[in-house]
């Protein structure tokens, strides 16, 4: 190796210090060159002056620091007591309850497949009248707009689940007996 050829006796402290300075200035020059290339590319590609803005437009987006206002200068709890009108059933519902209400009102979302299943099952096994009954029932118990009814609604759901299972179970039995009769 070359390093072994270099005798340490020639390396006194001042020379080492000079060497260190040279290496540092080399590195700094490298960094400068890198920046120059970066800037030059940005200029030629046309994105160097993109972040330039004039003082006027900067003033429009200044951060507001006043009591009662948020950083954009708006009253921060103006939406707290807003009510939204449901496009499906035209009731007005507290904004915080609107999403869960809409989910049920339109029959979409997490429980939709369960609700749809229930409707298919009841539609197949009984006549159309019971299906419409079910829907009416839904509307009557739809207490989404008030906070107090939440527990009641949950209870209603859990009451209905066993009913679905029974119906399904029955339908399986029917097919079994049917098959055995055929054989």
């Amino acid at each position: 190796m070359k390093m072994e050829e270099v005798s340490m006796s020639s390396l006194d402290n001042s020379k080492l210090e000079g060497l260190a300075q040279d290496i540092l200035s080399d590195l700094v020059e490298d960094a400068c060159l890198g920046l120059c290339f970066e800037v030059h590319r940005a200029v030629k590609q046309g994105y160097f002056f993109l972040d330039d803005t004039d003082q006027e437009s900067m003033r429009d987006f200044e951060i507001v620091d006043q009591p009662g206002l948020d950083v954009f200068g708006q009253v921060y709890n103006q939406w707290k007591n807003k009510e939204c009108v449901c496009p499906n059933c035209s009731r007005s519902i507290a904004a915080s309850r609107f999403a869960p209400h809409l989910e049920k009102c339109l029959g979409m979302g997490r429980n939709s497949s369960r609700i749809a299943n229930r409707r298919i099952v009841t539609g197949n096994n009984t006549n159309n009248k019971s299906e419409s009954d079910q829907e009416d029932n839904d509307d009557v118990n739809d207490n989404d707009w008030s906070y107090g009814a939440e527990k009641k609604a949950k209870k209603r759901k859990s009451d209905k689940v066993p009913f679905i299972f029974i119906v399904k179970f029955k339908s399986i039995n029917i097919t079994h007996t049917h098959i055995s009769v055929c054989i």
Binding site: S25, V28, E29, A31, C32, L33, L35, C36, F37, V39, H40, V43, F48
Partner: peptide
């Protein structure tokens, strides 16, 4: 530097000669 020289005429060499002393 770029505003002074004009957007089209600036070269890497210009930038290096202008920027390196200041960078150091």
């Amino acid at each position: 530097v770029i505003r002074e020289k004009g957007l089209e005429h600036v070269t890497v060499e210009d930038l290096v000669t202008e920027v390196t002393p200041k960078g150091r």
